[in-house]
């Protein structure tokens, strides 16, 4: 790993009211956030939430309808030899099927004046050395992901942008990516990684940006989001769940009915929920706070945009 920067240059990505509309679809709408160095920032939202489009706009691949994405104050296309500043892997793009990984990486290295020895280094690092002279045509999804990530690492960039990097990877590959993101953040690098699976980002991200339908839902530390989620959701199992639901409704408290015997009480807390059931003589079989699932935090946070979408469907 000779010649690599031990400390990355302090680089901030700024999205200013970034929007991408086509027709009446708002792929990304008025997104304003900053992505800071020294930590892993997860970018989470369901498929179609606008994650890829946002990343493509940062990289200058798609043009914003309005707003802008800046890297330390510059647009991506203002960077000379941009791979030294930003290394990115956008899913589904890693080389021409007729090329070998070595040709693909060598051409990228030449275009950004990266020393050729880096090609062999990243091939080694990603475990692709043994297939360096095979055509990409025959590669599995996981191998293509590894190749795309190798390309992102080629110029040892200050910023790493990865779009759904875990797709198609085996356990070993996932461990590699996690370690890689951790290391680069610890070296002061800026790491921005998207996923549609909360379990993937939750374990690796320090900061989480949640989006739904192209709009910002939350931007907070992972710990903050988990705390909020666990404090608020209490799972109650009871043969008289409907009676409890009635009580909650009459007191204007929020809850979700999971099934006939299971409801989730939101925002009331463990003690108050138990006391409410006891005072009304409702038999309980389970009373528990949900443990650290960001999945439920996200569901909670997205409820608003879901309701919005439901009502807009009704109107439509």
């Amino acid at each position: 790993m000779t010649g690599l920067k031990q400390q990355k240059k302090h680089t901030v990505i700024t999205l200013e009211s970034l929007s991408n509309h086509y027709g009446t679809t708002r792929a990304v709408n008025q997104l304003s956030v900053e992505i800071h160095p020294g930590k892993v920032t997860g970018f989470f939202g369901p498929n179609g939430a606008g994650k890829s489009t946002t990343m493509r706009m940062i990289l200058g691949l798609d043009a914003p309808t309005s707003g802008q994405a800046l890297i330390n104050g510059q647009r991506y296309d203002q960077l000379t030899y941009p791979m030294h500043t930003v290394g990115a892997h956008i899913s589904g793009t890693a080389g021409h099927p007729g090329h070998t990984p070595r040709t693909f990486l060598r051409a990228l290295a030449q275009s950004n004046r990266v020393p050729q020895q880096r090609v062999e280094q990243v091939l080694e690092e990603s475990g692709l050395s043994s297939v360096a002279t095979k055509r990409i045509r025959g590669f599995s999804l996981g191998m293509r992901q590894c190749l795309g990530i190798s390309a992102a690492l080629l110029a040892d960039p200050d910023v790493l942008i990865l779009d759904e990097p875990m797709n198609g990877l085996d356990a070993q590959g996932i461990a590699w990516i996690r370690q890689l993101m951790r290391n680069r953040a610890d070296q002061g690098g800026t790491v921005f990684v998207s996923s549609h699976l909360m379990s993937e980002v939750q374990q690796v991200a320090d900061q989480l940006i949640l989006i739904g339908r192209g709009e910002l839902i939350a931007n907070a530390t992972t710990q903050q989001l988990i705390n909020e989620a666990t404090e608020q959701v209490v799972t109650v199992r009871s043969p008289h769940a409907s009676a409890l639901a009635g009580l909650l409704t009459s007191r204007n408290l929020q809850f979700r009915v999971v099934d006939e015997q299971l409801i989730e009480v939101i925002g009331l807390g463990l003690q108050a929920t138990g006391a409410l059931a006891f005072a009304n003589g409702i038999e309980l079989h389970e009373l528990s706070a949900t443990h650290g699932s960001l999945e439920s935090a996200y569901n909670q946070l997205t409820q608003e945009s879901m309701e919005f979408s439901a009502s807009s469907v009704e109107r439509g």
């Binding site: 960077l79 000379t80 007729g98 070998t100 051409a107 990228l108 030449q110 275009s111």
Partner: peptide, 29 residues
């Protein structure tokens, strides 16, 4: 590779670097 002094001065050098990459891609297929 200082970012500030980027644009026009480096235009030709970027063009030549890119051309080399294009040659590699052509002969790789």
């Amino acid at each position: 590779l200082d970012l500030a002094e980027s644009n026009s001065a480096h235009g030709l050098s970027v063009l030549l670097a890119t051309a080399r990459a294009e040659i590699t891609k052509f002969f790789g297929l």
